[in-house]
């Protein structure tokens, strides 16, 4: 049990309220290193808010965020990033007028590396992702698909223990999604970290996740293996009107 707490990032009964709006009403999530977990739910379910809580951008109005057994609720995003929580954004948010390499170096330096080591780490990650020749390209000059992969690479440049990916596959075609999936599958082993993948694309979720959380209306709805979740009638009901997950 203790070992579980040692390498985990969890939310315990987290509530987030903006004025009268309750974005999250009691959600428990545990991210463990070494595996890819998914987070799904209809639009407006509170997925991004949850990611914001886990990465320190949103302080829970109630409940705790616990990192490796330590309460970090209310720690700002910088502190959490340095403590090993990396994230990507729905809108990539690359540094437009800096090169791809400098984008990654920022994260590396952010964790305390000096410039030379930051360059080495950035090149390593870019090479691993097959983007080694993109180093000098400006952040603003990338194609859409590359932009999203680089934003993941940048989060990886933190060498995080926990990586939160916010809809990385959105807008990707089938080929790009396959490529993304193979990258995500390889992350936990290569970087010794745990991944939480927020996605609408069911194929991606089914293809890479060992375990899936479902939230709806700010509350935990279900969790289990992808197959269990897919067969869950409550989950199906929540998604009524959306495409059925392919069998």
């Amino acid at each position: 049990m203790n070992q579980l707490a040692e390498n985990s990032l969890e939310t315990r009964n987290v509530h987030v309220a903006f004025g009268g709006i309750h974005a999250l009403s009691g959600v428990d999530i545990t991210i463990k290193t070494g595996m890819v977990q998914g987070l799904i739910g209809p639009n407006g379910a509170g997925k991004t808010t949850l990611v914001n809580v886990l990465s320190g951008f949103q302080k829970p109005t109630r409940g705790n965020v616990v990192l490796n057994g330590k309460d970090v609720s209310g720690d700002g995003p910088q502190k959490l990033a340095r403590a090993g929580v990396g994230r990507s954004f729905q809108a990539a948010r690359l540094f437009q007028d800096m090169s791809v390499e400098q984008n990654l170096m920022t994260a590396a330096i952010g964790t305390g590396l000096n410039k030379a080591d930051a360059i080495i780490r950035s090149r390593e990650i870019l090479d691993w992702m097959g983007l080694g020749h993109h180093g000098a390209v400006l952040g603003g000059a990338l194609s859409y698909g590359d932009e999203r992969r680089i934003s993941i690479a940048r989060a990886l440049a933190l060498h995080p223990k926990f990586l939160l990916l916010d809809e990385p596959a959105s807008g990707m075609n089938a080929e790009e999604s396959q490529n993304l999936m193979s990258i995500i599958r390889a992350i936990p082993a290569h970087f010794n970290c745990g991944v939480l993948l927020i996605e609408h694309n069911m194929e991606v979720i089914m293809g890479v996740c060992e375990h899936v959380y479902v939230v709806d209306g700010g509350r935990s709805l279900a969790n289990g293996t992808p197959q269990e979740v897919q067969d869950n009638p409550d989950v199906r009901r929540a998604y009524l009107g959306e495409e059925d997950a392919a069998a």
């Binding site: 995003p77 948010r93 800096m98 400098q102 920022t106 989060a155």
Partner: peptide, 20 residues
């Protein structure tokens, strides 16, 4: 300098990179 320029480019993303 690189850290600072990152904050100029995107404050939020820079925070997610651990930049103070």
């Amino acid at each position: 300098g690189i850290l600072l320029r990152a904050t100029r480019a995107d404050e939020v993303a820079a925070a997610a990179c651990g930049v103070s």
